[in-house]
Amino acid sequence: MGPESAGSAQRSHVDRLYHLPMITPQGGRRSAMVPDVEVDFGAGPTTVPSTMRYVDLTGNGRIRVPAQGAVDWSQLNKLPECITVEWSGADRGVVEAVAARQIRFLYWHDASGTVDLTGTGVTDVRLDGIGLRSVRLPESARVLLLREPPESLEVDAPESGHRMDLRLFSRGPDIRIPGGLSRVSELWLKVAGTVSASVLTGLTDLEELRVSFDDPPGVFADAQDLQAHRGLRTLQLDDAYDWDPGNLPELPSLRGLEINGTRRATATVVKARFKATDVRISIHGAKSEAWLAAHMSNPFRDWVEDSKPFGAAACEAYTRARSAIEALAPTASDRMAVAEHALRGLIAALNAIDAEYQLIDTLRREQAGEVFFELAAQAEVPVDQARRWFADRDF
């Protein structure tokens, strides 16, 4: 990680909230006293540290599982410290395996039908899948993250989700709170460019709300509808560049308002409104109209908070890559070669930027990856090929 700064300190806080806990294999040098073990879930043996706490069984990690057929879940017994399992596709015994062990974190991609976790002790669950129809949660569940949840999804949670932290990440035009979660106390909506506060209708116990925008302009519409949530204590808005603070109603329980990424004019209005009140205001990344005019649609626009030249260089690198890919002719014979040049050029530029400023930390690295693979998809580069190009990074 690069040098500490006010910006990086803020991001550490944001990063903690942004992701479900990701329990990974112990980093750094491994002691010679820590033995390796050989595991074979059915697709061939792999040697891993016996202290491994996070097991990726999606096919993207070191450990492989058979594409079809039985999975030898007894191999988890060789990893007694494992508390996180990442899985993909049909059940194939994963729920039973999680229930039989002290697995606390379950990340499940491409889930479908009914996912019944009531017999497990999981505390944190992350699910996605267009075929997902219903979810049943145990008493132990505290965090539920749903990516692109189907509109008809229903969740059976103890006490209708009372005291739970619900996180809905969706880039679709509409987002809906799944049925059965009317009493969640914490909610994080991560959306595309706009969302209405009306989606919160029906929530009765909401105390903490965070709304993050992936795309410009970041419109938090119908903010006046928050008046129904009189128990709301904290509100956080990320990259909400086009919202009117004048529409924010009086919230008697509000004690914290955090804004990350906004217009300077908006920041001024917010500070004036809550001056001499009990509401603690925290504003980061207030930008001028000139900066936004040039960089509003750039995903690296907030990197300027760490360092202006660092952020500007990253924005320029992205603009070059995006311009090259957008100029690709659909039937051009050299389409893949041009895409490779643009994408490798982006990685080379970020390598150079990090070498100079040493400010691309874990959060920025993940963001760079998301940007890279979005551009690769736009250029119709096969995922495996894009992964190989991205692996050339030094940051």
Rank of each mutant, 00 (worst) to 15 (best):
Q378F: 13
V125H: 07
D128Q: 02
P35T: 08
H229Y: 01
V199G: 09
S323K: 14
G369D: 06
D116R: 14
L209H: 04
Q378Y: 14
P245F: 10
P245R: 09
S170P: 12
G369L: 05
T114F: 04
R280K: 15
A355D: 07
V14G: 02
H162Y: 15
I130C: 12
T331S: 09
V371A: 15
V143E: 07
Y54K: 05
R320M: 09
S74N: 03
P25W: 11
E340C: 01
P49G: 03
I83A: 05
V304T: 06
R126F: 10
G161N: 13
D174F: 09
H162R: 15
Q236G: 11
I175C: 05
R53F: 05
F372I: 09
F300C: 03
E374I: 07
L146T: 03
S140D: 04
A197K: 06
E154V: 10
S307D: 15
P252I: 07
R230D: 03
T277G: 02
G59M: 02
P245G: 06
S50I: 00
A286L: 12
F169P: 04
A272Q: 03
A337C: 02
Y318S: 11
V94I: 13
E340I: 03
M52A: 09
G129A: 03
R344G: 14
A6Q: 12
K308T: 15
D225S: 09
S31M: 08
R388V: 11
K78V: 00
P21W: 08
A342K: 10
D56H: 10
A317Y: 01
G59V: 01
A9G: 14
V55N: 00
R233C: 09
T319F: 03
L232Q: 05
S282L: 01
A228F: 05
R101T: 00
K308G: 11
I353Q: 00
T47Q: 14
L232R: 10
R142P: 03
V279K: 15
V14F: 12
G27W: 05
R163L: 06
Q224R: 13
A286Y: 09
D174A: 13
E250D: 15
D110V: 04
E208C: 08
A32E: 10
L350K: 02
F220K: 13
V135D: 07
A272D: 05
F213Y: 01
W243Q: 09
K190R: 15
V211F: 12
A355Q: 04
F169C: 14
A321N: 11
E159T: 10
S88M: 11
P49T: 02
R183N: 14
V65S: 00
P150L: 06
R136W: 03
V304Q: 08
W73D: 02
